[in-house]
């Protein structure tokens, strides 16, 4: 089912999304990858506030290439999400509404998604040029010294993603490949 979803996202909306749904996201998302996650963890450990509101918001695992003059952003596709698995359950328990990345997640992350009615979306890996065109504005809001790994606030319109892990813990990576294998055997 193709549908449009506003970000930030409510738990009620997240709960309606099912693994396999093709979704267009519109609204505000935040980028963070390896180094920014490490620093967010250190910030929380020190008892300090994160640089952005986490409740209901979405983190996009992405570090763009530099923008050419006159462009909003450079190439902007997802990076492998599993590298952030170590830090993710804590952010989900703080209210993180959604994640956008690519690739498998750990069981601990899947449990935290279920527990918090969150959702994990996959964007198309390696389609950074196409995805850059769905980003209307980009602003570094924290950790500027991390360069490509800084936290950016992005405004997106009709940003294409697929629901991979839904709030019931269904995992499209497991079911889709399995379903296809079975179909082939039967054929």
């Amino acid at each position: 089912m193709n549908q449009s979803v506003q970000i930030p996202i409510s738990k009620e909306t997240a709960k309606k999304l099912k693994a396999g749904d093709y979704v267009y996201l519109t609204g505000v998302i935040y980028t963070a990858r390896d180094a920014a996650h490490k620093r967010m963890q250190e910030t929380l450990d020190a008892g300090k506030e994160l640089p952005m509101e986490i409740k209901g918001n979405a983190i996009y695992y992405m570090g763009p290439s530099p923008a050419r003059p006159g462009c909003v952003i450079g190439s902007a596709g997802p990076t492998t999400a599993s590298r952030m698995d170590k830090y993710t359950p804590r952010l989900l328990d703080l209210g993180l509404g959604a994640m956008i990345g690519k690739g498998k997640r750990s069981q601990a992350v899947i449990e935290a998604i279920k527990r918090n009615d969150s959702v994990y979306f996959a964007a198309i890996g390696g389609a950074g040029a196409l995805l850059s065109q769905k980003i209307i504005s980009s602003e570094v809001i924290a950790y500027d010294d991390l360069g490509a790994e800084a936290i950016r606030k992005l405004e997106v319109k009709d940003f294409p993603v697929v629901v991979v892990i839904d709030s019931d813990g269904n995992n499209l990576y497991e079911t889709a490949a399995g379903a296809y294998e079975k179909k082939k055997d039967e054929g």
């Binding site: 690739g103 996959a122 296809y180």
Partner: peptide, 12 residues
Amino acid sequence: GLGIGPGGLGGK
């Protein structure tokens, strides 16, 4: 024949 497919979302 593994079924992983484009983007890992199922396919040949």
